[in-house]
C-alpha cells in the first residue's frame, strides 16, 4: 500500500478507534441502560414474578393517576420553589456582599472556605447531622427555642418534615451558587464599574444594570445545576424522614427508588424515572425561556 493510501486509512479509521473506548464505556453505562429503561417502562417486570410482559402505556397511566406520585410531585415543586429559590437568593446575596464589603483578601478566602465546608460533607452525613439538630425531643434547635420560651416545633411531623429537608438542603447547597456567582463577580471587568461611577450611577443601579445582567449566564447555570440536583434528591430524604410521616416528605426520585430498588417493580420504576426525567427537561427549558424573557423585558438581556 502506498504512503498516501496509509494516510487515508489512518485519517479515516484512527479517529474512530480513538473514540471507540470512550464510546463503549458511554454506551454501556449510559446509552444502553437508558434504552433498556425505556423498554422496561412499557413492560410489567418484577423478577420475582417472571419475565417482562408488554403492557403498553399502562405503567405511565398508573403512575400519573397514583395519588402518592402526585403528592410527591407537589412536594418537589414546593422544594424547587422554596429550597432552590432560597439557595439562589442567599447564594447571590452572600457572594456579592462578600465581594463588595470584605476588602481583605485573607478574610474573604477564609469565609469562602467556611461557606464551602457544608458542601464538602456527604449528604447522608448532613442528613444525620440535621436529624440530630432538629430532633423534637432533644435537638439543639428545640432546646434553644425552649430556652427562649418559644414553642417547640415537631420538625419531622407531617406539616414540617418537608421544610426540615429544605432547611438541611439550604444549609448544604447555598455555597454552590455562592461560589459560582462569586467567581463570576471577581472576573467582571473593573473598567465597567469605574465608568458607571464616573456617570454617577447608584449602587442599586449598578447592581440592576451591570452586575446582574453580566452574571445572568452564571446565575442560570447555578440554578440549572441545583434544579438537576433537586430531581435526584434522595439521600437526605432517606436519612432524615424516609419520606414520612405518611408520605408527607416523599419526592418522586425517592418514590422511584422505593418502587424499583425495594419492591423491584422495574417496569413502574422505569416509567417513573422517564416521567421524572422528561419533567425535569421540560421544567428547565421553560425556566430558561422564562428567564430570557424576564431579562429581555428588563432590557438587561
Amino acid at each position: 500500500m502506498s504512503r498516501k493510501g496509509e494516510d487515508i486509512l489512518v485519517k479515516r479509521y484512527v479517529p474512530f478507534l480513538l473514540v471507540l473506548p470512550a464510546f463503549i464505556v458511554l454506551f454501556s453505562v449510559t446509552i444502553f441502560p437508558t434504552i433498556w429503561s425505556l423498554y422496561m417502562s412499557f413492560h410489567q417486570y418484577n423478577p420475582i414474578i417472571g419475565k417482562p410482559v408488554p403492557v403498553g402505556w399502562k405503567n405511565f397511566n398508573y403512575i400519573l393517576h397514583w395519588d402518592r406520585f402526585q403528592n410527591s410531585v407537589v412536594h418537589l415543586f414546593y422544594y424547587l420553589l422554596f429550597g432552590v429559590g432560597i439557595e439562589m437568593i442567599l447564594g447571590i446575596t452572600v457572594a456579592l456582599l462578600l465581594y463588595e464589603l470584605i476588602k481583605s483578601e485573607k478574610i474573604r478566602l477564609l469565609l469562602l472556605v467556611l461557606f464551602i465546608i457544608p458542601m464538602m460533607i456527604p449528604p447522608s452525613i448532613v442528613g444525620t447531622l440535621w436529624r440530630f439538630l432538629l430532633d423534637p425531643f432533644s435537638g439543639v434547635v428545640n432546646t434553644i427555642l425552649s430556652m427562649l420560651h418559644l414553642p417547640v416545633v415537631d420538625w419531622f411531623g407531617s406539616k414540617m418534615a418537608l421544610a426540615s429537608l429544605i432547611i438541611a438542603d439550604i444549609w448544604e447547597w447555598t455555597s454552590l451558587p455562592l461560589m459560582i456567582i462569586y467567581s463570576g463577580r471577581v472576573s467582571l471587568p473593573q473598567s465597567v464599574y469605574e465608568a458607571a461611577w464616573v456617570d454617577g450611577a447608584s449602587q442599586w443601579t449598578i447592581l440592576r444594570r451591570i452586575t446582574l445582567p453580566m452574571l445572568k449566564e452564571l446565575i442560570a447555570i447555578a440554578l440549572i445545576i441545583r434544579f438537576m440536583d433537586a430531581y435526584k434528591f434522595i439521600d437526605k430524604v432517606t436519612v432524615m424522614t424516609q419520606g414520612g410521616p405518611g408520605g408527607a416528605s416523599e419526592l418522586p426520585s425517592y418514590l422511584a427508588y422505593l418502587v424499583g430498588a425495594q419492591q423491584f417493580n422495574m417496569g413502574v420504576a422505569s416509567a417513573m424515572t422517564w416521567i421524572i426525567g422528561l419533567g425535569s427537561i421540560i421544567v428547565i427549558m421553560l425556566f430558561v425561556k422564562f428567564m430570557k424573557k424576564v431579562l429581555k423585558s428588563q432590557k438587561i438581556a
Partner: peptide, 10 residues
Amino acid sequence: PPGHETMGID
C-alpha cells in the same frame, strides 16, 4: 415524647 408522630428506630 415530642416527635412521636415520626419516631424511627434510632
